[in-house]
Computed example of a mutant assay.
Amino acid sequence: MGKTGRIRWCEWCGDPLPEHQGPGRPRRYCRDSHKALAYQLRRDARLLQAMGVAEIRCDVRTQDHAPPRPPGPPPPVAEPKQGSLF
């Protein structure tokens, strides 16, 4: 709980934040990586808006960003070519 007596939550993942103590602003994110991800999302949204994209529908906070794989066995993995770095 903060100075107001209520629990604050991370704006990215929803985990509870530690109690704010001392001067300065209270935290908005539980990890620096969540703060960076939120900034990148805001930045990308501004860029897309400038490009004229009207709406983006996705939840970036989900763990699985890939589209669902169709049922069945996984596709074969290609062998690297000779001389390839990877």
Score class of each variant (00 low, 15 high):
residue 1 M to D: 04
residue 1 M to H: 05
residue 2 G to K: 01
residue 2 G to S: 06
residue 2 G to E: 09
residue 3 K to Q: 13
residue 4 T to W: 08
residue 4 T to L: 15
residue 5 G to R: 00
residue 5 G to A: 02
residue 6 R to N: 15
residue 6 R to S: 15
residue 7 I to S: 13
residue 8 R to M: 03
residue 8 R to F: 04
residue 8 R to H: 14
residue 9 W to L: 13
residue 10 C to V: 02
residue 10 C to H: 01
residue 10 C to W: 00
residue 10 C to P: 08
residue 11 E to G: 02
residue 11 E to Y: 06
residue 11 E to R: 01
residue 12 W to R: 14
residue 12 W to M: 11
residue 13 C to M: 04
residue 14 G to S: 11
residue 14 G to C: 12
residue 15 D to C: 13
residue 15 D to H: 14
residue 15 D to F: 11
residue 16 P to D: 08
residue 17 L to D: 02
residue 17 L to R: 04
residue 17 L to V: 02
residue 19 E to K: 15
residue 22 G to M: 03
residue 23 P to A: 05
residue 23 P to V: 05
residue 24 G to N: 04
residue 24 G to Q: 03
residue 24 G to I: 11
residue 26 P to Y: 01
residue 27 R to Y: 09
residue 27 R to L: 09
residue 28 R to F: 03
residue 28 R to G: 12
residue 28 R to K: 08
residue 29 Y to C: 06
residue 30 C to T: 05
residue 31 R to W: 07
residue 31 R to I: 02
residue 31 R to Y: 06
residue 33 S to R: 14
residue 33 S to Y: 03
residue 33 S to E: 14
residue 35 K to E: 05
residue 35 K to G: 06
residue 35 K to C: 08
residue 36 A to I: 11
residue 37 L to W: 00
residue 37 L to S: 10
residue 37 L to Q: 08
residue 38 A to Q: 04
residue 38 A to S: 14
residue 39 Y to S: 03
residue 39 Y to N: 07
residue 39 Y to Q: 08
residue 40 Q to F: 02
residue 40 Q to A: 05
residue 40 Q to R: 13
residue 41 L to W: 00
residue 41 L to C: 11
residue 42 R to P: 00
residue 43 R to L: 06
residue 44 D to Q: 09
residue 44 D to E: 12
residue 45 A to H: 10
residue 46 R to D: 04
residue 47 L to P: 11
residue 47 L to M: 15
residue 48 L to T: 02
residue 49 Q to D: 09
residue 49 Q to E: 13
residue 49 Q to C: 04
residue 50 A to E: 13
residue 51 M to L: 14
residue 51 M to G: 06
residue 53 V to H: 06
residue 53 V to Y: 12
residue 54 A to V: 09
residue 55 E to P: 07
residue 55 E to Y: 12
residue 55 E to V: 07
residue 55 E to N: 08
residue 56 I to Y: 03
residue 56 I to M: 14
residue 56 I to R: 15
residue 57 R to K: 10
residue 57 R to I: 07
residue 58 C to G: 07
residue 58 C to R: 12
residue 59 D to L: 11
residue 59 D to G: 02
residue 59 D to V: 12
residue 60 V to P: 09
residue 60 V to G: 13
residue 62 T to F: 02
residue 62 T to V: 12
residue 62 T to P: 00
residue 62 T to Y: 01
residue 63 Q to D: 14
residue 63 Q to F: 07
residue 64 D to A: 14
residue 65 H to M: 03
residue 66 A to V: 05
residue 66 A to H: 10
residue 66 A to G: 01
residue 66 A to W: 12
residue 66 A to S: 08
residue 67 P to D: 09
residue 68 P to Y: 02
residue 68 P to G: 08
residue 69 R to I: 08
residue 70 P to G: 01
residue 71 P to F: 05
residue 71 P to N: 08
residue 71 P to E: 02
residue 71 P to A: 09
residue 71 P to H: 10
residue 71 P to S: 12
residue 72 G to D: 10
residue 72 G to N: 08
residue 72 G to Q: 07
residue 74 P to M: 03
residue 74 P to D: 00
residue 75 P to A: 11
residue 76 P to N: 04
residue 76 P to I: 07
residue 76 P to R: 02
residue 76 P to F: 13
residue 78 A to I: 10
residue 79 E to Y: 06
residue 82 Q to S: 15
residue 83 G to Q: 01
residue 83 G to R: 00
residue 83 G to C: 01
residue 83 G to T: 02
residue 83 G to E: 08
residue 84 S to W: 06
residue 85 L to W: 04
residue 85 L to F: 06
residue 86 F to P: 00
residue 86 F to R: 07
